[in-house]
């Protein structure tokens, strides 16, 4: 997205912006609306990822029954819920940071929620496999 044709708006920034948006996005030059929408869709994809973790935790607690010892099952459900919450919070942070970077023509920030996602999924899957195999 950042490597598309450079966008050179003629109108300067931020007039008419009010409240929360003004405070969080700060100055800079309003980016091409298409980039803003792309950022929004990426944000929504992260939110759905967070919801998938929530759904995983809820489903584990609801359906896993006696497959796992209760402590392990509840512990895993809690872990998945927590990872989902962290990703959801990180999604907004990232949305804002990307929006800010675009407004100042800076390189887009790296997504730190990506390693959270990978680590969370790997740990949860690892524990589940381990318990299923060795219990």
């Amino acid at each position: 997205m950042a490597d598309q044709e450079p966008h050179s708006p003629t109108t300067p920034p931020t007039t008419g912006r009010t409240g929360l948006s003004a405070r969080l996005l700060g100055g800079g030059i309003e980016p091409d609306p298409r980039f803003t929408l792309a950022n929004e869709r990426t944000f929504l994809a992260w939110i759905r990822t967070a919801l998938a973790f929530l759904a995983g935790g809820v489903a584990l607690e609801a359906f896993a029954g006696d497959v796992f010892p209760t402590v392990v099952r509840t512990g895993l459900a809690i872990t998945l819920l927590l990872v989902g919450m962290v990703i959801a919070a990180g999604a907004t942070t990232r949305w804002i940071r990307v929006e800010r970077a675009m407004r100042h023509s800076l390189p887009l920030p790296l997504p730190w929620i990506a390693p959270v996602l990978a680590t969370g999924a790997a740990i949860a899957t690892g524990i589940m496999l381990g318990v299923l195999i060795f219990r």
């Binding site: 708006p9 003629t10 109108t11 008419g16 912006r17 929360l20 948006s21 969080l24 996005l25 309003e30 980016p31 091409d32 609306p33 298409r34 980039f35 803003t36 929408l37 950022n39 929004e40 804002i96 929006e99």
Partner: peptide
């Protein structure tokens, strides 16, 4: 020229 992103 402006996208007017909404943070809310």
């Amino acid at each position: 020229p402006t996208g007017q992103p909404k943070v809310g």
